[in-house]
């Protein structure tokens, strides 16, 4: 390990950043794209709907299995603090 590199201070970094900002100027983020946002929301909604349908498909047995598993986890593991 290069000792010199361990001595980089936040001050030195700050100076380097200022220098770099002075050279390249501001980098504005691209404007938000409504098209991209809509596409993500569509994917999220579809995924969410699939999840609900899958859960319903498991029906009462699925719900009971989950409850039993949680109960077992509680019994086996350390007490949860709420």
């Amino acid at each position: 390990m290069d000792l010199e590199l361990e001595e980089i201070t936040e001050e030195a970094l700050k100076m380097k950043e200022i220098e770099l900002n002075g050279i390249i100027g501001p980098i504005p983020p691209p404007p938000p794209s409504q098209e991209r946002i809509d596409r993500i929301m569509n994917a999220v909604m579809k995924d969410s709907a699939d999840f609900v349908v899958e859960g319903m498909g498991r029906g009462l047995k699925g719900v009971l299995d989950t409850m039993i598993a949680l109960k077992k986890k509680d019994d086996d593991g350390p007490k949860r603090s709420y």
Binding site: P30, I37, S48
Partner: peptide, 21 residues
């Protein structure tokens, strides 16, 4: 969530551009 996505949508609008970039 997942019933109401309004708050998630706000987070998405706030950060989507920065994340994409």
């Amino acid at each position: 969530l997942p019933g109401n996505t309004a708050a998630y949508y706000e987070l998405l609008q706030k950060y989507e551009s920065m994340v994409y970039s």
